[in-house]
Design a protein around this nucleic acid. Structure first.
Lengths: 344, 344
DNA sequence: CGAGAAAGTGAAACCGATTTGAGTTGATCA
DNA sequence: TGATCAACTCAAATCGGTTTCACTTTCTCG
């Protein structure tokens, strides 16, 4: 590989002049340099540049599950804002695995200028970002324990839970079940609290057997839904706390031959991958996904620009809304339209 | 940030000794060094190490659409093989955009030891990888024009097309439509050829108006399906060439109130995101997705190990198979089971 | 025209690790 | 004890760019 020295020699100038040319300064011999670059097929070494400049213009986004379309949407938002600011985005997967996450963080720090992290758990290790000289970290969606606070873009998870509960209450549901996530995931526990507390406030208690914990993935939702729905006394409504587990729940509902919404009202959190394709449409709690990623990147850019650790970490909380469709129905209300999820 | 020199001073040894310790050589003062590293919070600079070593232990995988679960699955396969070989995988998105792809490649080359690329088009620029000194490139799924050949992991796309056609022929379908991709995408055109030629061989010609080209994405599939299915004379069967466009087609089918398989047999390529959730189950052409990613990474590792450009580029072609479900039905055959995609 | 400012240049230092080459230390064996 | 060899160690060179500093050239304007 040709180096900047080769180019300099070919163009009869000093390496520093070539460097200046590359970096947009005006240079007298620019045509000769350009020609030499072309002929030698010169590409500046990223490592050398990074080393000297101390920056890479790359941001890493670390998510627990790239298969989840929610993350894909946030990535799109972050990518766009990054592009506007001359930053490249790379993506890493942690499979909801806190050990893998730790390894990824260790490997990636030092190769990028900043990180957007969706923590696998509230116990995720942010130690690498706690030193004052560390690169900036923005958390998304979930929060972490630990001594230091970071910029965070979250949504009003608690309100999402209350909206869901209130909707089901309004429809007359009293025996409701919830499929939620591990206790260590702050976003699902907030949704869960919002849901349970709203029911409690209405003097209805969700019994233990109607609270199942899954792993946020399709198989977890499937298993949890089977547990809840194959018992003798079934709830009249089910709230599933994220989209992938909702997919699993839908599969279980199909296997069990349960009709939605006639035999069960179903309410999910986040847009489903199958949206638009199944019938009846699913009622969901929604949030601005793309915007969430964009916001995370904006916070990061601000930190990078400012270079200051001065101002306090900011937490942005985006709103959620209830999107009512056909999967939730008034309890014992006669309406009979709506399809079936029965297995073929 | 502490450097290796700071550690060396704190431990009263030379920087080179610290370096050796870090890299696993036996060193007398290892405890003192370890203590110094701990105290100073030392992390070796990736840039400096990359510059000196000329390698990064990172592989980039560049895909046209991270929202597509097919890619997510291949990523998982590649990631695992990478991990076994001490390589970290980062992911970049190109949105099926050849210009963006070019920019991503330019930025990423020099930061990684190798690239797995799913080209956005056969005209994708692989120029950066053509020099003998360039880092290795493995192509996945699609092939590119251009002077040099690269290691490639593909599937038997042509056979996928013929399997699809033969299945529909066997069921008695004669008036069939196909939703395919741009002419510049080799994988879809191979599937398309397999499909059309098989019909032609059976002396049935698929008319132009039954051949629609989409952009591989949900909206493209929706539009294409609308075009084909809202005409007066509809085909009795539809073959959709990839999963995301299949989702769009399903949505269109729902909007138009067409019953599958009673009024239309539907056959798709690749597993759908909504699989397991909708009814009737969709007949599909399938392939080993995870294995495909794993193979790509193995080819890359081989190149990296060998360091040789000697042996010819290899092309691995993985098999496809037909998975028959309820969405394809014998033409005019009475069977009446199977659900409906009617919009709620 | 000449002073002063502006623009451009090259040599050398620098970023922070690894590697080389030339010792130094310590153990082993005759 | 002295020779031989293995195991370590250090100073210096190196990777390939960018930046600084001191200097030269060119432009501007009274």
């Amino acid at each position: 590989m040709a180096t900047i020295h080769d180019v300099a020699r070919a163009a009869s100038v000093a390496p520093s002049t070539v460097s200046r040319h590359i970096n947009g300064h005006s240079v007298r011999q620019s045509e000769a340099i350009e020609r030499a670059i072309e002929e030698l097929g010169f590409r500046a070494s990223a490592s050398a540049r990074n080393l000297r400049k101390g920056s890479t213009q790359v941001i890493a986004m670390i998510v627990p599950d790239i298969q989840n379309p929610y993350y894909a949407a946030t990535v799109a938002g972050a990518e766009e804002v990054g592009r506007e600011n001359g930053l490249r985005l790379v993506l890493c997967n942690t499979d909801e695995d806190i050990e893998l996450e730790k390894a990824v963080l260790r490997d990636i720090v030092g190769r990028v200028d900043g990180v957007i992290l969706v923590p696998a758990s509230e116990r995720s290790s942010t130690a690498l970002f706690e030193a004052p000289s560390a690169i900036p970290l923005v958390l998304m969606d979930r929060e972490t324990l630990g001594p230091r606070r970071f910029d965070t873009v979250t949504i009003d998870n608690f309100r999402g839970g209350t909206l869901a509960a209130q909707h089901l209450l309004d429809l007359g549901h009293r025996d409701v079940a919830i499929i939620t996530g591990p206790l260590t995931a702050s976003q699902s526990s907030a949704r869960e609290r919002g849901f349970l507390e709203t029911f409690a406030a209405a003097r209805f208690v969700v019994p233990e057997r109607f609270i199942e914990r899954g792993n946020f993935r399709e198989d977890g939702g499937y298993q949890a839904a089977l547990n809840i729905l194959s018992a003798a006394d079934r709830p009249s409504a089910l709230f599933v706390i994220n989209n992938m587990m909702s997919m699993g729940a839908l599969r279980a509902i199909g296997h069990l031959g349960i009709k939605v919404p006639d035999n069960l009202s179903l309410l999910c959190f986040d847009q489903l991958p199958c949206e638009g394709v199944i019938s009846p449409r699913i009622s969901t709690i929604r949030r601005p996904m793309q915007e969430q990623g964009a916001m995370a990147m904006r916070l990061l850019v601000t930190r990078l620009r400012a270079g200051d650790r001065e101002h306090e970490p900011r937490t942005l909380t985006l709103p959620v809304e209830l999107s009512i469709a056909a999967s939730t129905q008034r309890l014992a209300g006669g309406g009979d339209r709506g399809g079936s999820y029965t297995a073929a």
